[in-house]
Amino acid sequence: MLTLPRKPVATDGSTNLVGLTRDGLRDALIAAGTPERQAKMRAGQVWQWIYQKGVREFEAMTNLAKPYRAMLADHFVIEVPQVVRREVSADGTRKYLLRIAGGHEVETVYIPEEGRGTLCISSQVGCTLTCSFCHTGTQRLVRNLTPAEIVGQIMVARDDLGEWPEPGRNPKDETRLLSNIVLMGMGEPLYNFEAVRDGMRIAMDPEGISLSRRRITLSTSGVVPEIARAADEIGCLLAVSFHATTDDVRDRLVPINKRWNIESLLDALRAYPRLSNSERITFEYVMLDGINDSDDDARRLVKLIEGIPAKINLIPFNEWPGAPYRRSSNNRIRAFADIVYKAGYASPIRTPRGEDIMAACGQLKSETERARRTERRAPATL
């Protein structure tokens, strides 16, 4: 698997402070000349400017002495991914195409809802899982995102939403337009564990972005060995891309099932440490016409998850050009949901959002990577 150096380096060679853990930030300040006895305090001040106030220029950090601000500017930068394109759907969904180091691009989606707003962020450029119903899965894995590129997606969205607190106001008094995060964008989060963990710890830090762990949901296709670790080291809510009730069908839809089958996945979920807190696991189930949407599938599903506090999100298939599947009919989806609901499980049918800008679940794909592949295939011309 492809990885990047842990220390975020800006384009000019300076160290990017975005994405550093608190300890990493403290160590970087000491290395730049901050006296060790002051480093914890200085790190806390800089941290609040970056993540609580959204400041990108050291000169604006007015509770630091001017010589110290100059030192910071000499050694460090505050950089987030570059917005290449911003699209707004008819339903208000926003999709950002973001450029990161190496000229690669990822997509991030903001979904506004009444009283809340959810940001769907990516963890990799491309994906290695090749789920057959997912547009992102048709793009090869290029590399993992760094913590800076992960938390940077949140910062970019807050920029666009104008959500950083106004000077002189308590940030807790601000409207939370971005209230929830889902790691459901491009990539498998548990295949980029450390970077996702560090990015989410920054997002949850009470002196910064300050999102509750219950406002963050990590979605995995079933990387069984990392599930318990995610509960211990991240502690956010868990969602599972389930999508089938037999190994034969799931092998085709979610090929990782060939490595960790339904039984081993469910065993890991039953042992998930945070179940003791009665936190439900969300089972994501994309509805595919004639593939996984029968009444028998619904009955098998409730039998399989018996004993697991759960919610079943039924997702109408979001079609994309060349997709090999069709969306189940509304009547079929409602009949499936009714069986699940009568068995005692919440079974909301997700309303597709942002389909007109290819921002719906399973539709994200970097145009840059498509273009690069096209260029490689193009015949040379004289």
Rank of each mutant, 00 (worst) to 15 (best):
L275V: 09
E194W: 08
D247S: 09
L238H: 05
H243P: 04
R176A: 15
P255N: 13
L190Y: 08
N170R: 10
I256V: 15
V224L: 13
L237I: 02
I181Y: 02
P189W: 08
N261C: 07
V249L: 11
A195P: 02
G199R: 01
L218H: 01
R229D: 11
Y272L: 10
V182S: 06
R215Q: 12
V286F: 06
H243M: 00
R201Y: 03
A231L: 12
G235W: 03
T282G: 00
L265Y: 04
S210T: 01
S264Y: 01
S276I: 10
D205H: 15
D205N: 15
N257D: 12
T246D: 02
K172F: 05
G185E: 14
N261V: 03
F193N: 07
G290F: 08
R176L: 15
G199M: 02
E263M: 00
V240K: 00
L288D: 09
I291D: 02
N192V: 09
N192F: 04
L265T: 07
A271Q: 15
N192K: 05
G168W: 04
I227S: 01
R270G: 14
P171F: 05
R215A: 09
L237Q: 10
R214W: 00
R274Q: 12
S276R: 15
V254Q: 10
P189S: 13
V196M: 03
A230F: 05
P255K: 11
R229A: 13
I234V: 13
P167K: 10
K172E: 13
R201W: 06
I262C: 07
E263H: 04
T245E: 07
M184C: 14
I181M: 04
I227E: 01
G168V: 03
L253K: 11
R215L: 06
F193P: 09
H243C: 05
L253F: 11
Y272A: 12
D232G: 04
Y285N: 10
V182F: 00
R270P: 05
A231Q: 14
I291N: 07
I202C: 06
G222F: 04
L177F: 07
P225K: 03
F193D: 08
P171N: 01
L178F: 02
T175V: 15
N180A: 08
A195K: 03
E279M: 13
